[in-house]
Design a protein around this nucleic acid. Structure first.
Lengths: 340, 340
DNA sequence: ACTGGCACTCGCTACAGTCGAGTGCCAGAG
DNA sequence: CTCTGGCACTCGACTGTAGCGAGTGCCAGT
């Protein structure tokens, strides 16, 4: 059965009021606050239909209505009007990001900015290694049997790792090793390096084989397996704002989820082409997050996407505002990255 | 007025029971659970004195007694018996830390381990740069006007930073710059580098002056001013365990404090010679932490201290157990660092 | 198709009464 | 002088009852 325009307007009004007041909203206060042009009784009939269809529900008989996850979903998909950012917000974003000196700094500032603007928990993924290319590999001798491997990606990320060699290696040999790995790997997508790393062992001079074998193991770990992704987090204190009414009383599951990098990566890291994604309550596969919503998007220089960012809050959140903010911040960060 | 041995025993019993049950403890249940050898009435008299002296208090008239911050302090200073770690715990520590591949990994594993063993929030400071020495400086050309500066400290920490040169520089000149900075700075305590960095500009060949001037600015920032300290955090979900009874209802101030790196550094970073420090409730200068206690200590290879670590929990916490764990973990990590 | 009216539901608050853990104090024993 | 048993008292926690009011569903009327 179709929902006519007025019913949709009623749903929209319910969502907006509930988000604003955090209290179940009744038919009378609805017609008072919004210009619906009909009487409370009519609204009640509409509400009955909306409830039957699963968009709203009553916490108790004879209480007002509250949107369900499904209701929020409909609201987000079809009812929310875009909320343009205020000039003050735009300025805040520019000012905040302008002073960044390098990638680490950009990520840190971004995550704090997001948390502050949305007043929610913000998560930013460092530019994904899988999507980066090798810009340079450096081998720094620490002792005769120890090297520091430093990998610099074109996204600005730098990873380092200690290499314990099986036998002492001369300084000149280190230079040879360095030349070799750079020749073969610079410019290559990290995700495509494994076969090339294998080949390195065959290509190199026999007396370097043992060292190169060890080095290649570490290379593989650094480039592909380990640390794969890094995250920055901010604004956890915002979770404790809503007087413990959100998140049905306990922050524990949420805090636990936030400590699981794997979960967070799934949430904000799985980015399709530049779309913004909203996951509401139930829609999160992870059980601990059934009381939360996540707004996430990808970011990167130009059209390419190098990582994800997003915010997490109660299902009862200001979707239009949050969506606008996340989208704007991601675009600014993308522009910033494009400049380098 | 002095507190005789029995009164101290009563205080100890109150603390132990309250920590275990989280409920105000009365005279009757006290004598039942502990072998005090006297009647409830006697205990009541002792309690009256303890209350007068400010070691315990009554939440309401005719409720049991609860330790005050001052009571916990006395308990920690004079009454707690050392709780040796269980063999299982020792094994857990060893196993957990054994697999670490580099400094980052050590810090991450340590902070998780601490959080898990104490079931509280754990904080670990990365080896402080101020206490480290320069092991090596590397300059990686990114383009003709851009260098990546990589600093490796003897504690294993690696910092990197992008340098934007005022004018293009030849590859050979980069090598010269690298030789120069390494000659002058390797082996020097980071906190003592500023005058030497200044001198670098004078020492270098005239045509390198502009580049070296820029480089020296970045060097100073990297070595001394910026990022000075880093932290790792884990176990925030543990805050939400005690059913919101701890922390007088709101986690907000605590979560806020945990986001302020400066505050955390003050808490665990100010380490005196290898002592373990316990701050109970009020004793924290930071207001948001008046409902919390912090157990912290320094760590480092051998007798040197390179950083701090600690845990944060409700004032009502198992002090002996926590202290033992923190101390043990710090020692293990110190040994691990000494091996490198 | 909408509206006004009406009976009904049910959570919230206030109030009274009971219960019991725990206390302070006192007189008496060791 | 110290400890103990006894006793009256306090006060929070819990229970049950009652009234209020926001909000609903339904129905008859326009």
């Amino acid at each position: 059965m179709g929902l006519d325009d007025r019913k949709l307007a009623v749903l929209r009004a319910i969502v907006e009021d509930y988000v604003a007041t955090q209290e179940p909203v009744g038919s009378k206060s609805l017609v008072e606050r919004h210009q619906l042009g009909v009487s409370p009784a009519t609204v009640r009939n509409d509400m009955a239909v909306l409830e039957e269809e699963g968009y709203i529900r009553q916490p108790h008989t004879s209480a007002g209505r509250v949107p369900t996850d499904r209701g929020y979903r409909l609201f987000v998909d079809r009812l929310s009007r875009v909320k343009p950012l205020s000039p003050a917000e735009r300025r805040a974003i520019e000012r905040f990001l302008a002073g960044a000196v390098d990638l680490d700094d950009v990520v840190h500032r971004t995550v704090r900015l997001l948390a502050q603007l949305t007043r929610q928990v913000a998560v930013v993924q460092y530019p994904s290694l899988a999507r980066s290319r090798v810009r340079h590999l450096e081998l720094v001798p620490i002792s005769t049997t120890r090297l520091m491997l430093v990998m610099i990606a074109d996204t600005g990320r730098v990873e380092q790792r200690l290499v314990e060699l099986p036998a002492p290696v001369l300084a000149d040999d280190v230079l040879d090793l360095r030349r070799l790995v750079n020749e073969k790997l610079v410019g290559v997508r990290l995700s495509e390096t494994p076969p090339l790393v294998q080949a390195l062992i065959d290509d190199c001079a026999p007396h370097l084989r043992p060292a190169m074998t060890t080095l290649s193991t570490v290379l593989l770990e650094t480039l592909v397996e380990r640390h794969e992704e890094r995250l920055a987090l901010a604004g956890t204190a915002n979770l404790a704002r809503g007087g413990l009414l959100d998140f049905q009383g306990s922050l524990r599951p949420i805090l636990e989820a936030l400590e699981e990098e794997v979960v967070l990566l799934k949430l904000i890291g799985e980015v399709e082409p530049s779309t913004l994604r909203v996951r509401i309550g139930d829609e999160n596969e992870y059980d601990n997050l059934r009381a939360a919503s996540v707004v996430s998007t990808g970011y990167g220089p130009g059209a390419t996407i190098v990582g994800g960012m997003g915010v997490l809050g109660p299902t009862r959140m200001d979707y239009p505002g949050t969506i606008a903010t996340v989208r704007a911040v991601a675009r600014y960060v993308g522009e910033l990255l494009a400049q380098n």
